[in-house]
């Protein structure tokens, strides 16, 4: 079962850590709103299948880096459609 985890909390919030703790190897992570800050934190180890909303990266002056795939809202819809279930943290 493939779960899409959508997290909008900044990385220092407890809920962000709980999301990563609940993450299964084949799951996908989507960073939105203040969570995209995680894409710019070098010390933070993010899962392999990690995406970030481009509009939120741009609004915060960040780029996604090599390990995070930047997507638009249409891409977000596609991820939710393809996932077996979606958890919004």
């Amino acid at each position: 079962m493939k779960t899409l985890h959508i997290v909008n909390k900044s990385p220092e919030q407890a809920r962000f850590g709980r999301c990563l703790a609940a993450f299964d190897r084949d799951d996908q992570l989507l960073l939105t709103e203040n969570a995209v800050i995680a894409a710019g934190v070098a010390s933070l180890e993010l899962p392999t299948h990690c995406f970030a909303l481009e509009a939120d990266l741009k609004a915060r002056g960040l780029t996604s880096g090599a390990s995070v795939v930047s997507i638009d809202y249409n891409g977000m819809v596609k991820l939710t459609v393809e996932a077996d279930r979606v958890i919004c943290w």
Binding site: N8, D72, Y73, N74, V77, K78
Partner: peptide
């Protein structure tokens, strides 16, 4: 919060898709 803004952009994309 940014919730209504993110939700509206997502909703527009849902229709567009």
């Amino acid at each position: 919060s940014q919730a209504p803004q993110t939700a509206l952009s997502f909703a527009q994309a849902v229709i567009a898709e």
